[in-house]
């Protein structure tokens, strides 16, 4: 039984049909790399999985939690799905530790001391145990993104969505973030990543999903797909980025 099931998903932005019937099953522990040109619908697809984008037809199910088109109460779903953003989106008025504690405190109603211990453990996991009291503006981009990962993990999600999480980083900071993601993958975390890090996708990914014009155009094992693209569109895409 797949952890994430996406069935016949359609979405329009006005007259623009951005998702044209997406079917995708993701097993527990899989690392999915979503790739494609800008405008291919990959970020939109990712954002529908935790309800940041609504959809018009079809169905999404995460760990038994089904959502239908134009569902409004998405909090149960969001407790199962964590998300890390390109721009980190840390809360600037809270320290790193408080960022990680916020949702466990007010959504999970965890007691202060317990939430604090959990936050420390999560910061340790991303290698920032000594930055508990640092504010976001005192951290590098890579450190901020690692705090953002810790913040998402504190809610103990079943799936972690990563939306181009290294695209806003200086090149020398990319690896420290990818190393954290690699550790998570090794621990068995289910990851769905929109990424331009093709080398990383090849190394860590279990399944590559190439999106083209609102459809899943080609999928497969990343190593095979990169070596032997079956469609001219994917071949052209791989050619363009290498």
């Amino acid at each position: 039984m797949a952890l994430v099931r996406i069935d016949a998903l359609h979405k329009h932005f006005g007259s623009n049909h951005v998702l044209k019937g997406i079917d995708l099953d993701i097993e527990e522990g899989q690392v999915i790399a979503l790739i494609g040109r800008s405008g291919s619908g990959k970020s939109t697809l990712l954002r529908t999985i935790n309800g940041l984008e609504s959809f018009d037809e079809g169905c999404i199910e995460v760990d038994g939690e089904r959502i239908h088109p134009h569902e409004t109460d998405l909090r149960a779903l969001r407790q199962k799905v964590g998300m890390v953003f390109q721009q980190f989106n840390l809360f600037p008025h809270l320290s790193a530790g408080q960022n990680v504690m916020l949702a466990t405190r007010i959504v999970r109603k965890m007691p202060e001391a317990e939430a604090r211990e959990l936050a420390k453990a999560m910061l340790l996991k991303v290698g920032l145990q000594d930055k508990f009291d640092a504010f976001p503006d005192q951290l590098s981009g890579g450190q901020q993104q690692r705090v953002a990962i810790a913040r998402a993990l504190a809610m103990q999600p079943r799936v972690l969505l990563c939306d181009e999480i290294t695209s806003a980083l200086d090149p020398e900071l990319v690896n420290e973030v990818l190393a954290v993601v690699k550790d998570l993958a090794a621990e068995g975390m289910t990851l769905i990543m929109v990424t331009h890090e093709m080398r990383f996708a090849r190394e860590v990914g279990d399944k590559l999903v190439f999106m083209y014009q609102g459809r899943v155009h080609e999928t497969g094992d990343p190593r095979d797909v990169f070596a032997n693209p079956q469609t001219p569109e994917l071949a052209a895409f791989i050619g363009a980025i290498q």
């Binding site: 940041l52 909090r75 407790q79 799905v81 953003f85 840390l90 809360f91 916020l102 913040r151």
Partner: peptide
């Protein structure tokens, strides 16, 4: 992005 981050953490 701040509001999206809060939503993704299941805050109402």
């Amino acid at each position: 992005g701040q509001i999206e981050a809060a939503q993704s953490l299941a805050l109402n």
